[in-house]
């Protein structure tokens, strides 16, 4: 697996609209990477931010508009344009666990989980809980279904699926079934709850964390959480870092 140190250009060949403020950019290269790894995406004279890989063959990534840079990517970038990437980064990646598994996705946390889902040998023993604030914010529901995964939908306002949080749905499953591993990605409070629930039910878990990142390779310390580097030790952790 070759890691690109200095930004290299790739051409965007196709753009998929996921919802009103989220797009997936498909590029003209393959990028061998492990599920959970990320790349730094750079636009000259703009900025550079970390993004999870959506697919590796071809290399694609998904952008939700949250700030000025993601807004530029989602409004200005067109098919045929070039973007620059370096990576993939991260030594802590999702690793397969045999048996029944659950993916828990909050918001754009679906991206690395979708990357993981593509690598799972038995799609039928894995369910995905996809959560969002409201129906129009839900992401990747059909993508997961097309892979053959059973989906459980939750929305905070009850406009789709179960009303409540992903972790409510997860708790219900953990109480009644023997689960081998829970994979999570999403907002911190959700991940913390997953860690607590899994500990209480003696279930293994793998969580992909977010943090402010600069270098991406463990030098600057920007992404340190209780001494663990999210960019290098993670982004996927098998223990909640604040309890290390």
């Amino acid at each position: 697996m070759t890691k690109i140190s200095l930004p290299q250009p790739v051409t965007v060949t196709k753009i998929i609209k996921e919802n009103s403020h989220t797009r997936t950019f498909i590029t003209d290269i393959n990028l061998p990477a492990m599920p959970g790894q990320f790349v730094m995406i750079w636009l000259p004279r703009q900025a550079e931010k970390p993004f999870s890989l959506t697919t590796t063959h071809p290399f694609s990534f998904t952008v939700m508009t949250v700030g000025p840079f993601t807004k530029i990517l989602n409004t200005a970038l067109q098919s045929g344009d070039r973007i620059w990437y370096r990576g993939p980064f991260g030594r802590g990646t999702y690793t397969p666990v045999p048996g029944k598994t659950i993916l828990v996705s909050g918001g754009c946390g679906c991206v690395p989980l979708y990357c993981l889902a593509q690598t799972l040998k038995s799609k039928t023993s894995t369910r995905v809980i996809i959560g969002a604030k409201t129906k129009t914010e839900l992401l990747f529901v059909n993508r997961f279904r097309r892979l053959g995964l059973k989906t459980v939908i939750t929305t905070d306002d009850g406009t789709a699926g179960l009303k409540g949080f992903t972790t409510n749905a997860l708790e219900a499953i953990l109480k009644t079934e023997k689960i081998a591993c829970v994979y999570g990605c999403g907002p911190d409070p959700m991940l913390k709850t997953i860690a607590d629930l899994c500990r209480a039910h003696h279930v293994r878990y793998q969580l992909s964390l977010e943090a402010l990142m600069k270098c991406g390779f463990g030098i600057c310390g920007s992404c340190s959480r209780k001494g663990k580097l999210v960019c290098l030790d993670g982004p996927v952790f098998t223990r909640w870092p604040d309890t290390l």
Binding site: S5, W42, K214
Partner: peptide, 14 residues
């Protein structure tokens, strides 16, 4: 703003 730290052929530039 990023990019702030990069690895190149013979070291880092930041």
């Amino acid at each position: 703003e990023n990019p702030t730290v990069l690895a190149w052929d013979h070291g880092l530039i930041n």
